[in-house]
């Protein structure tokens, strides 16, 4: 039997859109797929997963200890349900990057990271070297393919489905060596960076935490999510979850506007799939202008207030 199992990502209440993107990748592979939702009191989330078009069955594995996002607990559950599946897919988010290699190792296989295109059931493309090269990866057919799906490369499958939901108890006891403590969320009410259709980012040039309010207020005017360069996060101007790039979030909004970001490869790799890239930088020779669709060589501290006035 050849089937795909997708590991759903959620926060206990809401299914993360990364799951429907994994489903798009599964659709491209062209095999029937099921979705596993692991967690505690997850009937709602399982219901959301069941609407993903094309889903065979949603398996809801419900146990108190699965409520915490500990890869050690989740991996052993996935392994317990892995037999019969030729592929196990998860998202390239921090959730998937933490979990999927643990599953792969328990199954004795290497993991395919960051699938950006499907060439065949065992033949994929993925970026390496911060997106500076694309490699064709062929996975062995005799063993399970465990992979992460590069969410910025895939559109979400629509929510017109109504798959069956099957509840199951956990197969394994909780590990005792790891304990989840808490999550300190940096984000406010703005659209999620990874799914927002518009994103406005600030770099080192913002100069301070207070000045980042310029970014937030412009973003709020046009309903955009907000991002940042590593330099801005390192300097403490904004929380880590805003970092865009090789080591932050890889995003693909329709519109990306970068203020005071130079355009280092590690940053640019995070926005290569954006529809339109706009750069505002006072240095006309900044590398970001090489890849920007629209560039403006000017001082951001003049440009943002002017834009706010024009849009307000």
């Amino acid at each position: 039997m050849s089937n795909i199992l997708i590991i759903a990502e959620h926060d206990g209440q809401n299914l993360n859109p990364s799951t429907a993107k994994c489903a798009q990748c599964a659709t491209a592979i062209g095999l029937p797929f099921d979705i596993a939702v692991l967690g505690s009191s997850i009937a709602d989330v399982a219901g959301q997963a069941a609407t993903i078009a094309g889903t065979g069955t949603v398996y809801a594995v419900d146990a108190a200890h699965l409520g915490d996002p500990l890869a050690a607990n989740h991996a052993q559950e996935v392994v317990a349900m892995a037999s019969g599946y030729s592929h196990i897919l998860g998202p390239s988010t921090t959730f998937g990057r933490d979990l999927m290699p643990r599953i792969a190792a328990l199954l004795g296989v290497n993991q395919v990271t960051d699938i950006s295109a499907v060439e065949g059931s065992h033949h994929f493309k993925r970026p390496i070297y911060a997106g500076n090269a694309v490699v064709d990866v062929v996975a062995p057919e005799a063993v399970t393919v465990v992979a992460t799906v590069r969410v910025a490369s895939w559109k979400a499958v629509d929510g017109s489905g109504s798959a069956a939901i099957e509840s199951r108890p956990a197969a394994e006891a909780a590990v005792t060596h790891s304990r989840y403590i808490d999550l300190q969320s940096g984000g406010g009410e703005r659209p999620d960076l990874q799914t927002a259709s518009r994103v406005i980012s600030g770099g080192r040039a913002m100069g301070s935490k207070e000045n980042f309010d310029l970014i937030y207020s412009l973003a709020d005017l046009i309903g955009a999510g907000t991002g940042a360069s590593r330099a801005a996060v390192d300097a403490g101007f904004c929380p880590n979850d805003m970092q865009v790039g090789q080591t932050g979030k890889i995003i693909a909004p329709d519109l990306y506007i970068a203020f005071g970001i130079s355009g280092a490869i590690q940053h640019v790799t995070g926005i290569k799939d954006a529809g339109t890239i706009v750069a505002v930088n006072k240095d006309a020779d900044a590398p970001i202008f090489e890849i920007a669709d629209i560039g403006l060589a000017a001082d951001l501290f003049n440009v943002i207030p002017e834009m706010k006035q024009l849009l307000g």
């Binding site: 990866v137 629209i294 560039g295």
Partner: peptide, 23 residues
């Protein structure tokens, strides 16, 4: 169970776009 890396290609390039004068 090694993966095979059969071919490497440069990524698609984004063309340099236009410059505008002001906000």
């Amino acid at each position: 169970n090694d993966l095979q890396f059969t071919s490497h290609t440069p990524p698609p390039v984004r063309e340099k776009g236009i410059m505008v004068e002001d906000a």
